[in-house]
Design a binder for these strands. Structure first.
Length: 483
RNA sequence: CGGGGUGUAGCGCAGUCCGGUUAGCGCGCCUGCUUCGGGAGCAGGAGGUCGGAGGUUCAAAUCCUCUCACCCCGACCA
C-alpha cells in the first residue's frame, strides 16, 4: 500500500513541514511567487493568535487603528538606516489610473514612516503622551526564498507603534511588549521562548536596540517569533515628532515599534508537530475536540449519532470548540488518522458500547498508545474534557521546554560553537560586532539569535572576552541556525 | 541572482533515452451493494489542449529552439 499521511518528521523535516501545512489545509501556494493562500483552518489558527495578542494589547492601554498600504517613497528615505535596510525588498507602485505617478508609492514593508508622519501631527504636548497605537495589517517584503508562513512576500501581522516623553518610558514599553509576547507564546501557543537583545547585525533597520523572543523548532533551528524595538529618537527626528514638556521646552519623542506575524503559525506547527502531523495547543486550536461516531448496523448508527449530537451540544454550550465528524463512507480508523494529522488536541470516540455504558472514549493527541486513551462517563463530560484540554496544553509546553533545554549548550570557542549548532543552540561570550558575527556565519551557518536577558544581568562585564575573536564581550549570546 | 531539479487527470507518478494504435498506473472523486472500535472490499463510472510558443517530421508527451512556473541548495529577511 502506498504511504498515506505526511512524510515522517524524523525522516525529512523540511518536507514534513510543507506537506503538513498543505495536507492539514492550513495554506496553499498562490499563483504569485512567494505568496500564500491561507485556508480557513490556518486562518482560524491565526485568528486565535490575533485574539490572544489583541486582548493583551488592549489590557495595557493600546488602541487599534489603520494606516494606508501605500507609503510615499520619500517617507521611506527619511531615516538613513531604515531605507538602507529595506530598499532591497520593497515593492514599488509606479503607475496608477493608467498614468505614471509623480512619486512612486511603496507597498508598506512596515509602517514606522507613515505612522511617524501621523504621530507628528497628533502629538503637541507632553499631555498627549504616551501615544499607544497598534495596527493589524498585511505587509510586503520581496522575498528571495519563501516558505509557507515562515517567510512569504506578503504576510499578516500586527505592528505596534508608541511615542513617549522619555527614553526610560520608551524602554519600559519595549520590554513590556516583549513580556507580553513571551506570555502569549508560552501560555497560549505553548511555545517556550528566550527573551533577549539583538546584536547590531540582527537588529531592526532604524532601531537603537531590538529585543526578540526566540523559539526552538523541532529541527533545533531558531525562529524569531516576535520583536520589540527601542527606536530612541531616530524616527522622531526624521518625522518631527515633537512635544512641549512641562517647562515649555520643545523635545523629540522617544518611540517604539513591535510586531508578531503570521510566522507565529509556522512556529506553532514546527514547535509541536510530530511524525503524524500537527499537534495544536488547545488554547489556539481551531477545533479543540473532535467526535468520531462508530457504528456497525443502521440501528447502531441512529443511536450513536443521537448520543454524539448530545455530547456535541453539551460541550459547545460549555464553550468547547467541538466538531462532530459525520462524514459518510469513511472508516473510524481513517478519521482517527485524519484528525491526528490536523493536530486536534482531543478525540472523542462514541460507539454502540459507549452508548450502552453511557460513556465515551477520550484520546489525547500529545501522547501515544494506551497512555493517550481514557474512558469517561457522559455525565459531567464537560469537566473531564476541560481537564484534559488543560492537561494537553501544559504537556505540550512541557515537552517543548524539555526538548529545548536539552539542546542548549555552552561554548567557549568557535570549534565548540560549530559542533553545537548542528543539534542545538550555543551560548558563548560574544563581542556583538557585525564583523565577528559574519565570520561565524561564514564558518558555521549559525547567526546570533540574541543576548538572553536572564543570562546577562549586566552589559560589558569586566574580564569577559568574545569566545570567537577575543575582543571584549558585550555579554553571552545564543548562536543557532535560524529561519 | 548563481547551482541543481521538476512540469503528463484533484494529488503522487510511469511513459521521454530509442517518435508510431484510442496516453497509462496508484490514491482521491461519483454511483451502487457490503462494511465501520486504528488509514475497508467489490463492481461500474467521470475526469487530460502531456506548463506555454515556435520548429523538425507522413507522424511529437517523446527530437530541436525559446519561454514561463514551481521546488531544493546558497547570498537578504518577521
Amino acid at each position: 500500500m502506498a504511504r498515506q499521511g505526511v512524510t515522517p518528521r524524523s525522516e525529512d523535516y523540511a518536507r514534513w513541514y510543507t506537506e503538513v501545512v498543505q495536507m492539514a489545509e492550513l495554506a496553499d501556494y498562490a499563483p504569485v511567487r512567494g505568496c500564500m493562500i491561507i485556508r480557513p483552518y490556518g486562518y482560524e489558527l491565526w485568528e486565535a493568535v490575533k485574539a490572544g495578542l489583541d486582548r493583551r494589547f488592549k489590557e495595557t492601554g493600546h488602541r487599534n487603528a489603520y494606516f494606508p498600504l501605500f507609503i510615499p517613497m520619500s517617507f521611506i528615505q527619511k531615516e538613513a538606516e531604515h531605507v538602507e535596510g529595506f530598499a532591497p525588498e520593497l515593492a514599488v507602485v509606479t503607475h496608477g489610473g493608467g498614468k505614471e505617478l509623480e512619486e512612486p508609492l511603496v507597498v508598506r514593508p512596515t509602517s514606522e514612516t507613515i505612522i511617524g508622519h501621523a504621530f507628528a501631527s497628533w502629538v503637541q504636548s507632553h499631555r498627549d503622551l504616551p501615544l499607544l497605537i497598534n495596527q493589524w495589517a498585511n505587509v510586503v517584503r520581496w522575498e528571495m526564498r519563501p516558505r509557507l508562513f515562515l517567510r512569504t512576500t506578503e504576510f499578516l501581522w500586527q505592528e505596534g507603534h508608541t511615542a513617549h516623553a522619555t527614553a526610560e518610558e520608551a524602554m519600559e514599553e519595549t520590554l513590556r511588549i516583549l513580556d507580553i509576547y513571551a506570555d502569549f507564546a508560552e501560555r497560549d501557543a505553548a511555545v517556550p521562548v528566550i527573551k533577549g537583545r539583538k546584536s547590531a547585525q540582527e537588529k531592526f533597520a532604524g532601531a537603537a536596540d531590538s529585543y526578540t523572543i526566540e523559539a526552538m523548532m523541532g529541527n533545533f533551528w531558531a525562529l524569531q517569533a516576535g520583536t520589540s524595538h527601542f527606536l530612541a529618537q531616530n524616527f522622531a527626528r526624521a518625522f518631527d515628532i515633537t512635544y512641549l514638556d512641562a517647562s515649555n521646552q520643545l523635545e523629540h519623542c522617544w518611540t517604539t515599534s513591535w510586531g508578531v506575524s503570521s510566522r507565529m503559525v509556522g512556529g506553532i506547527v514546527m514547535a509541536h508537530g510530530d511524525d503524524g502531523g500537527l499537534r495544536l495547543p488547545p488554547v489556539v486550536a481551531p477545533i479543540q475536540a473532535v467526535i468520531v461516531p462508530i457504528w456497525r448496523s443502521d440501528d447502531d448508527r441512529g443511536v450513536v449519532l443521537e448520543a454524539a449530537h448530545r455530547v456535541t451540544e453539551t460541550l459547545r454550550a460549555d464553550g468547547v470548540r467541538v466538531h462532530l465528524d459525520e462524514r459518510e463512507g469513511l472508516t473510524p480508523g481513517f478519521k482517527f488518522n485524519d484528525w491526528e494529522m490536523r493536530g486536534v488536541p482531543l478525540r472523542i470516540e462514541i460507539g454502540p458500547r459507549d452508548v450502552a455504558a453511557e460513556s465515551v472514549v477520550l484520546v489525547r493527541r500529545d501522547r501515544d498508545g494506551k497512555e493517550a486513551k481514557s474512558a469517561a462517563s457522559v455525565t459531567a463530560i464537560e469537566d473531564r474534557v476541560r481537564d484534559l484540554l488543560d492537561a494537553v496544553q501544559q504537556s505540550l509546553l512541557q515537552q517543548a521546554a524539555e526538548f529545548r533545554d536539552a539542546h542548549l549548550h555552552e561554548a567557549s570557542s568557535l570549534d565548540e560553537l560549530r559542533d553545537i549548532v548542528s543539534t542545538g543552540w550555543a551560548l558563548i561570550p560574544h563581542c556583538g560586532t557585525k564583523e565577528c558575527e559574519l565570520s561565524v556565519k561564514e564558518e558555521t551557518k549559525a547567526t546570533s539569535r540574541c543576548f538572553p536577558l536572564d543570562r546577562n544581568p549586566e552589559w560589558n562585564p569586566s574580564g569577559l572576552s568574545c569566545g570567537v575573536c577575543e575582543r571584549p564581550a558585550l555579554g553571552y549570546a545564543y548562536f543557532a541556525r535560524a529561519y
